[in-house]
Design a protein around this nucleic acid. Structure first.
Lengths: 189, 189
DNA sequence: GAAATCATTTGACAAATGTCACAAAATCAT
DNA sequence: ATGATTTTGTGACATTTGTCAAATGATTTC
């Protein structure tokens, strides 16, 4: 087994110990990828069979609104990247693009998903990923909906300081739902 | 089995057929409740062992921000109500309150959750609920983050017209993240 | 059914944010 | 290194939205 797979498996199996057999079953459908900045992992409106786990690097997801890119999130080390719509066999709503040269683990959803119905450990493993994603979305919603711009900025700066080192402010402003000029002015304090 | 349980079970088992044994195992932990308007199902910052399925009625969830209620969503017939934080054994972030006299099915999470690790159908049943919730949250996020106030109003009116019949505009404005005066003005067109 | 409470609408004004234009700074590619 | 491109910052002004106050309309309660 590739040593990088272990990080991924451990990250989402905190509730249960996976058997050797389960580990082998999952690893059959994983690969390690090294890809360059600007590579597009998933395209808006397309079906796609893979999800990804970021071993090293930075990724953003965005979609187009009236021709303008609207960023929806950034993934760094140990984050999952993918589209739940893809998981449910629907076209992705977002485009997912590398911001840095990155090392990723790809997960073949088409092959792994059916195993949920035959291997209970895999069912719970996938469950943990989706639960995690749902909690993340809840946070993102509260954060987005319920804060003033300045609070959003300060909280993001506090919780995800690495983003400000590695992600252009234009993208961050777009994620925060404010213009880059407004973000620039908030920072001038 | 109570006939109302069937609606609930069918709603989240579209991917698989549940065995008689599984159905019995789940139903052991369900009850039907009839509760009055203003009844509080779940309190902010408290741990709580139940989730609910709305058979008939209307429910809202909200939390307090600087002493002001901020509404986060409304559930009507066939919606699930609960807190993923409770499912993960953490205190709820929201208060959940009935807006109408309602009929609910309660699900005892403390009893059902462990079954995920022994019954694969239950694992996938719960998975379907959480997937569904995550897709709902994704929608809510796009909707909230990426639209102008007027678009949000128009889309909500289009997608959930029943809300405007049954939920006070004050609550809807708060959910949309705008003041009730602004909502009132948007509607005046 | 009258009184009390709650929900909605409207006006006037202030504050926050967006937009457009351009300049400065940083980064990239050759 | 240097020129080109991308990213960030700042000013002036328009637009949107929030806030406060008051009036009207609807619903609940006794």
């Amino acid at each position: 087994m590739d040593i990088l797979f272990k990080t991924f498996l451990d990250h989402f199996s905190t509730n249960q110990k996976l058997s050797e057999k389960t580990i082998a079953e999952i690893c059959n459908h994983l690969s390690v990828l090294n890809l360059d900045k600007k590579h597009i992992l998933i395209k808006e409106n397309q079906r796609h069979d893979f999800a990804y786990f970021v071993v090293k690097g930075a990724v953003r997801s965005y979609y187009l609104k009236d021709g303008v890119e609207v960023n929806t999130w950034f993934a760094l080390e140990n984050d999952m990247v993918g589209s739940l719509h893809n998981f449910k066999d629907n076209p992705s709503r977002e485009t997912i693009e590398l911001i840095e040269n990155s090392t990723l683990i790809s997960i073949n959803l088409k092959q792994v998903k059916p195993l949920m119905f035959s291997n209970i450990q895999i069912a719970n493993f996938i469950n943990a990923i989706i639960e995690d994603y749902a909690l993340f979305l809840e946070d993102k919603f509260y954060f987005t909906q319920m804060m003033s711009s300045i609070d959003k900025y300060l909280i993001l700066l506090d919780k995800e300081p690495q983003l400000f080192q590695r992600i252009p402010l234009t993208y961050i402003a777009s994620f925060l739902g404010i213009s880059r000029e407004t973000l620039s002015r908030l920072r001038a304090k």
